[in-house]
Design a protein around this nucleic acid. Structure first.
Lengths: 125, 125
DNA sequence: TGAATATATGAACATATATTCATATGTTCA
DNA sequence: TGAACATATGAATATATGTTCATATATTCA
């Protein structure tokens, strides 16, 4: 399919394909939604948090265990758990001195699985 | 279900729940995979790139059009398109002076949809 | 070939953020 | 109550990154 010239204006002035731009603009979700989406992905965009989420998908764990599993400081893990909780991706319950964290959302696994497909597809081509 | 004490060691020394940690450790994917996963999400974790991807999911577009749609500099858009291409999320074809970009992966939409469910779930509770 | 135009890119700057360190908070138990 | 321990958190630091600006590259057309 060829792109038909919708307008003859230069790029610098208005737009080259004005109709396309206008059509897509109407189809776009509100900026706030796309901003929230990016914010959520930003939370996923750190290997420490990804590892924590993956671990919690296997089992509820306390901070100390996560730190041991990942070979990280208790403080670093605690800071990241804070982010994950703010994003409502994990919840926690206290049992004495210990605080157990677990996944708060069943979508996480599905998002990860879809993203993994993209990665694996790239690897073996 | 109660957590049974698997070990009596202190957190500082070894691990509190050693069996859990060992079990989860074996279930975890290789670090490289989780690192790649985080890298991919890092690409999604910017509202400019999310908006570009969403736009391209609606229609193939040239750099100039994307810049006009988003109200951004051509340079800024071009830089971000570079990231998206490196992540193999978009491809491009040249037609004269114009370069058209389009989605390279059908998983993007699915990942976005899953993530949106999480967001919308949070909003109306 | 040279002017005009669309896109790409390197350097610089400002901002965001992950980890560390020190310390505070909360809980148990003697 | 006080000691021991698990977790949380504020400040500081180092690093990563998005945008801007200037400029390079690529293509068309007279």
């Amino acid at each position: 399919m060829q792109i038909k010239p919708e307008a003859v204006e230069r790029c610098g002035d208005t737009v080259i394909h004005e109709e396309t731009v206008n059509r897509v603009r109407e189809l776009m979700p509100p900026d706030e939604t796309l901003y929230d989406l990016a914010e959520l992905f930003k939370v996923f965009g750190d290997s420490t948090r990804v590892r924590i989420l993956w671990a919690l998908d296997e089992s509820e764990m306390c901070v100390c265990d996560i730190a041991a599993l990942l070979g990280m400081t208790q403080s670093a893990v605690s800071h990241q758990l804070r982010h994950l909780k703010q994003a409502k991706l994990v919840t926690n319950r206290r049992e004495g001195k210990t605080v157990f964290y677990s996944l708060a959302d069943e979508h996480v696994r599905q998002v990860f699985d879809q993203a993994l497909e993209h990665i694996l597809e790239d690897r073996y081509e």
